[in-house]
Every structure is written in C-alpha cells, then in structure tokens.
C-alpha cells in the first residue's frame, strides 16, 4: 500500500469526500483517511428525540429522564465509532473488468475482504449499480458492478463508494475509492448483418462454412439426407442407433475482415460492421483475421482471438 502524505489543502478538498483520492493501483484498505461519517436523517430525528426528552426532564425535574436522554446522547456518540468500525479494515481490491459493447453495461469486479473477527453487515457497494452484502469474519466476497457505456474505447471505473449504516442507521459511513481500472468498450455491433466480404479462398455467401474434407469432426445423430457412406455402421450394429460421421477442417478458408472494404459512411459505422462480422464469424467457427489501417491480426479463432480483434476495434 503506497500511502502518500496529504497536504492540508488536499486533506480538506471536497472531492476527497465524494469522488475519492486519485486512482490507486492495487488493493485499498479502508482506514480513517478514507472513511467519512455523517449523520443520516434518522440521526437528525434521534437528536430531536433527545432534545424532546431533555425538555420533559426539565419540566418535570426528573433525573431519570435526564439520565435516559443522556444515555441516548451517549449512544449517539458511541454509534459514530461503531459505524466507523463497520467499514474500518475492509480491503477492497480491483479484479477483472468485463468488456461491453457500446450501449451495454461494462462490468467491474472487486473483491472485498474482511480481515477482522467481526462479521460486517449490510455493506453497500455502489458504482452505477449497487449491491448489499454481508461479509463473515476472515472472508472475502467478489462483487460485480456495472456501469453503462456511451462510447467505445476505455471506460474508467470511476468512484466505487463503499458505505454502511450499521448498526443503528443514525450515521452513514462511506468511503469513496478510485482504482486504476478500465473496461474495454467495443463498438456496438451493426444491427443489420451484411454479407461477409469476399477474400482470397473464401467463397462464403451467407457465412455458412462448408463441412467436408478429411478431418474427422465427430458423430452426430443421423439426419435424413446424410450420405450413406458417412453412416457409422459400427454403432448401428451395437444397437445404438444411426449416427453419421462428420468431417471438417481444412475446407474452412480464411476470412479476412478489412477495414477498407467495410461498408459504412464513417469510422464508427465501419467499426460496427466489423464488430458484427467478428461476432458472427466466431459464432460459426470460421478462421478470420482483421485488417485495420494501423494493425493486422492474423487469422485464427477462439475466444481470445475474438477478444483481440474486438479490442483492436475498441481502441482504433
């Protein structure tokens, strides 16, 4: 933990209370520097109650009512400490981010750890969405919070507010935290699917790849129309029903998605189309590559390849 010393001016800057200090790299421990406490509306009501009790005590000159009022006033003081304690010591760590397409919500996951012996109740974590959780002693919870995206690129996590009103709800302790954490925002996929662009060796008309070739692909239940020579007779003989052998593999040609050959009026539209193509190509298992004016990603398939392509689009 790299705790820098704050200057007096920084210490009392309003943004510290609401937005948090400048983004941190790793885990943050909630301590007196980051936890702020103010009475809630109920806390205000409690003060009114105490004043009312004091008035009754005064008019009747009743020492026990005085004592009750003072006890509640002390409860009020003590609750500040207890509310502080409900957050103090918690360790919040940024975990992964979930990329999203523009307009959808990007996910940010955090781990929140309770290293103490006391259970923490009703800890609220709020980014744009919020969640409420209890953390047993020496435990940690993972939370996934979302933030809506407006434009492609990188989305900063912003301020994560951890707060709690436990135990009495008279005070709210909160801690605004900022992490160096950003989620990728891909372009929104085009709503209209346009035909894959033609490229060398690839003759897909509607995105269907041709099954065939030499590599055994697997067994599938027999469909009327499957060629007879592909029927797996061995299993039929065992009384397991009709299966046909499917082959695939090298017949799948490489699909090159080129920015310059993508329809669209402006950059965003073109990226949208590319994005849609990548999704569709991945869905049907094509080998595809991406050519951007500044980058070229060789053909491949698989989730990590798809991510690499979409990332290139996001950061274009």
């Amino acid at each position: 933990m790299n705790e820098t010393v704050l200057s007096l001016k920084q210490r009392f800057a309003l943004s510290r209370f609401m937005r948090g200090e400048k983004p941190a790299n790793g885990a943050l421990t909630l301590n007196q520097r980051r936890i702020f406490i103010l009475p809630t509306r109920q806390g205000g009501g409690f003060i009114v109650l105490i004043i009312l009790l004091l008035l009754i005590a005064l008019t009747y000159n009743n020492n026990l009512i005085y004592l009750l009022a003072f006890m509640l006033a002390s409860v009020f003081f003590i609750t500040i400490l207890h509310t502080y304690q409900s957050l103090a010591g918690l360790v919040v760590k940024p975990l992964q981010t979930q990329a999203a397409f523009t307009g959808e919500k990007a996910g940010f996951s955090f781990s929140i750890q309770n290293p103490s012996d006391q259970e923490r109740f009703d800890i609220q974590l709020k980014l744009e969405t919020e969640t409420l959780l209890d953390i047993p002693p020496h435990h940690h919870e993972k939370v996934l919070l979302f933030k809506s995206t407006k434009k492609r690129g990188k989305l900063q996590a912003g301020t994560l507010t951890v707060s709690s009103c436990y135990p009495l709800g008279l005070f709210r302790a909160w801690s605004p935290l900022r992490f160096k954490m950003e989620a990728l925002v891909y372009p929104a996929p085009a709503t209209v699917f346009s035909v894959f662009p033609e490229s060398e060796g690839f003759e897909g008309e509607n995105g269907q790849s041709k099954k065939g070739g030499d590599d055994f692909y697997g067994l599938q239940s027999y469909q009327p129309g499957d060629p007879i020579r592909q029927i797996h007779w061995k299993s039929y003989a065992k009384g397991q029903g009709l299966f046909s052998k499917h082959y695939g593999g090298n017949a799948v040609a490489d699909l090159w998605l080129d920015y310059n050959q993508t329809p669209g009026h402006d950059v965003e539209q073109r990226l949208s189309h590319l994005c849609r193509w990548i999704i569709e190509a991945e869905k049907i298992g094509l080998h595809y590559g991406l050519i951007l004016p500044n980058k070229k990603i060789p053909c491949n398939h698989g989730p990590s390849h798809q991510h690499a392509c979409l990332e290139a689009l996001a950061l274009f």
Binding site: N63, Y66, L67, F70, M71, L72, A73, S74, V75, F77, I78, T79, H82, P167, L168
Partner: peptide, 17 residues
C-alpha cells in the same frame, strides 16, 4: 451488539449527568 452499545454509553451518560 445493542447491549454493548448501551453499556458503552452508560459511563459517558454518567459524566454528562
């Protein structure tokens, strides 16, 4: 928890009293 809060409040209440 409530009991602890009250117990902790009593000494302070006595001082104010």
């Amino acid at each position: 928890k409530a009991g602890i809060i009250v117990l902790q409040a009593i000494p302070i209440a006595a001082i104010i009293f």
